[in-house]
């Protein structure tokens, strides 16, 4: 399946939404079953963190391993204990390779005018790479692909969560 087919914007994708909601509710349910919330500040904080993780996990698991961002999310969630333990090392590993290359080039010949389109040279791309999980090392085209897909799912997830909040607050 080509990227263009996947990226075709479909108006409110109810099937996708239902899947997301289902996954999310499952994880929420297990979360609740594990730990009954009590309204302590730190407890709430921890709990909200868990819910957030659940949200991302449901997103990624709906997509499955076919996307780079979902793979990255799943990997991060699975290894979050290890990640928290040695954050620095992982951070060093995951710094984008492209960055190094650009700096090296600039240092070598600062006066040379490199005519590349603004997409690469502006720090925006790096920013975007940091935002989209798992996009640190893919090429710009892939980055945009991933971003589009990620945005799609993230928006749906936000919608689902908002609806859930509305629902629970009305009950």
């Amino acid at each position: 399946m080509s990227a263009s087919q996947q990226l075709t914007p479909t108006n409110p994708n109810s099937a996708l939404k239902i899947r997301l909601a289902y996954r999310f509710l499952l994880t929420l349910n297990t979360l609740n079953a594990k730990k009954p919330p009590n309204f302590d500040h730190t407890q709430i904080h921890r709990r909200s963190h868990r819910v957030k993780i659940a949200a991302y996990a449901s997103m990624a698991s709906v997509v499955g391993p076919k996307r780079a961002w979902s793979r990255a999310i799943l990997w991060k969630i699975r290894n979050r204990g290890m990640l928290a333990r040695n954050k620095k090392r992982i951070h060093r590993i995951s710094t984008p390779i492209r960055l190094h290359r650009h700096h090296a080039r600039r240092r070598r010949n600062p006066n040379r005018v490199v005519h590349v389109d603004p997409f690469v040279n502006s720090g925006l791309e790096v920013k975007l790479r940091k935002l989209v999980p798992g996009a640190e090392t893919i090429d710009p085209c892939g980055l945009l692909d991933e971003t589009a897909d990620y945005i799609k799912y993230l928006a749906t997830q936000v919608e689902v969560m908002r609806n859930l909040v509305d629902l629970y607050s009305t009950i």
């Binding site: 509710l25 609740n32 919330p37 909200s48 957030k52 945005i151 993230l154 936000v158 969560m161 629970y168």
Partner: peptide
């Protein structure tokens, strides 16, 4: 947009954590 979405997820997860004991 991505940032706002991520922040929304965070915020909504916080709200979900607080708002609802009943699933």
């Amino acid at each position: 947009y991505v940032q706002s979405l991520q922040r929304q997820v965070e915020f909504l997860s916080m709200k979900l954590a607080t708002v609802n004991p009943r699933m």
